[in-house]
Computed example of a mutant assay.
Amino acid sequence: MASHRRPARVTVLTAAAAATAAASLGAVPASADPGATPAATRATVDRLYEEAEKATEGYNRADEKANALRRTVSQAQDSLARGQERINRMRGVLGSVAGAQYRSGGIDPALALLLSSDPDSYLDRATALDRVTARQTAALGELRREQRSLSQKRSEARAALAELEQSRAEVARHKRTVERKLAEARRVLASLTVEERADYDRASRTGERAEGPDGGPAEPLPPLADLGPSRAAAAVIAARSAIGKPYVWGATGPSAFDCSGLMVWSYRQAGISLPRTSSAQRYAGRQVPLSQAQPGDLVTYRGDASHVAIYAGNGQVIHAPYPGARVRYDPVNMMSHVTVTRV
């Protein structure tokens, strides 16, 4: 990846890789070398943005996991409540039967037969009592099974809660890393002159922005009518409507986006659910050669797929670049390790 131009944005990496990145990147200096050239300063900002983007990949992944765990815990708690209600009802029924037997005297069957003036009637009652006893035995067995099941569910719920707390801590850790890297980048940018900062904001990583002077694409894009009614076309149309919206890490629209959040939102408008992270989006469909890219294809970058864009046609993509920038067009080859995925 060319490092003398515009920084990355913030997405999602594997939790382990992001954690490793966060640890290894902590030694990056907080400010630029006072004697550094503007080009070196821009390279430092690019690196910090890329590091923040990788940490955001970890943040998004951990946040997605925490959300899934919250749903699991909620379902477990509902199941526990329903299980306890069943057990309470079963205990109530068994208690009522036991109380009725106690009130009837619970006389020994042999003695009851001797005292009975109508042995045939007694035998009928004894048979009925045997059936009641059999049902009680079955009910007791079911109660024990329900109690064992409830105990297992309680254990699983405790484990899910513990995992949720761990995931929340992981989210917070990645968030701190992202915020630290972004703060460092802001301090470095502050060392640039107004002219140097304007030059930085105009430039892409390749030094060739794909935007025209009016903020539109430098090259004509396929007419909307030519994109057809496909869902990929609908995603492109949605991404075009987001041009000019600010980059905010962790955001999924509609007023702000990070890079993978823009893809999630654009495809959601087309009725398609994408994974939250750019690394997962790389495998959300069939990979095709860059030479065969079509509007609506996802384009991921770097070996870890920590940045993603949507192909807009004519060698251009739409993406949310990095903090401080807005959703815009850029060349499809703006970074290294380009992978095209058709959803």
Rank of each mutant, 00 (worst) to 15 (best):
A256L: 01
N60A: 08
L221W: 11
T339F: 07
Y122E: 11
D108V: 01
A225E: 15
S255P: 00
G250Q: 05
R9P: 09
P119I: 03
S336L: 02
L290A: 08
E179D: 15
W265V: 04
R282F: 04
D201A: 10
A52R: 05
E211T: 12
Y122N: 04
G216E: 07
G58Y: 02
S191P: 12
A39S: 15
A110T: 12
S96V: 13
E208R: 12
A242R: 05
R148W: 10
G141M: 06
P38I: 11
A40E: 13
P217F: 09
D118M: 10
A126M: 12
E179G: 09
Y247Q: 02
E64V: 07
P217G: 05
T72I: 13
E156I: 03
E179Q: 13
A309S: 05
Y247C: 03
I310E: 01
Y301N: 06
L143D: 05
R158N: 13
R173I: 04
S167C: 00
A22I: 11
L182M: 01
E170F: 01
L115V: 14
S151W: 11
S230E: 07
R326H: 08
V340I: 11
D214Y: 10
A126L: 15
V132M: 02
A160D: 12
A270I: 03
N67C: 08
R176V: 14
R197L: 15
R282E: 03
P109H: 01
A139T: 05
D130T: 11
P323E: 00
N88K: 12
E179N: 13
A27S: 12
E170S: 15
P295C: 06
K245S: 03
Y283D: 06
V332Q: 04
G215S: 05
R240K: 13
L129T: 14
L150E: 08
V45G: 02
L227C: 10
R42S: 03
L262A: 00
Q101D: 13
T37Y: 03
Q316P: 00
P213D: 14
D63T: 09
R205K: 08
A238F: 05
P213V: 11
M1I: 06
G106P: 00
A190Q: 15
T252I: 00
I243G: 01
W249E: 00
P7A: 10
G207H: 03
R282K: 09
S336C: 05
T127L: 13
R131K: 03
A36F: 04
K181R: 15
N88M: 05
A81L: 06
T20E: 11
A68I: 04
A280T: 06
A239G: 07
Q75S: 12
N314T: 09
P331M: 05
V343R: 14
E208G: 07
A40M: 08
L13A: 11
V188D: 08
S278Y: 04
K153I: 10
A128I: 11
T56Q: 05
N67S: 15
R168W: 09
R158K: 14
A162Q: 11
A238K: 07
N314G: 06
R187G: 08
L115T: 15
L150K: 10
A126T: 07
T14N: 14
G228S: 07
L25H: 12
L150W: 10
A210H: 07
Y102D: 14
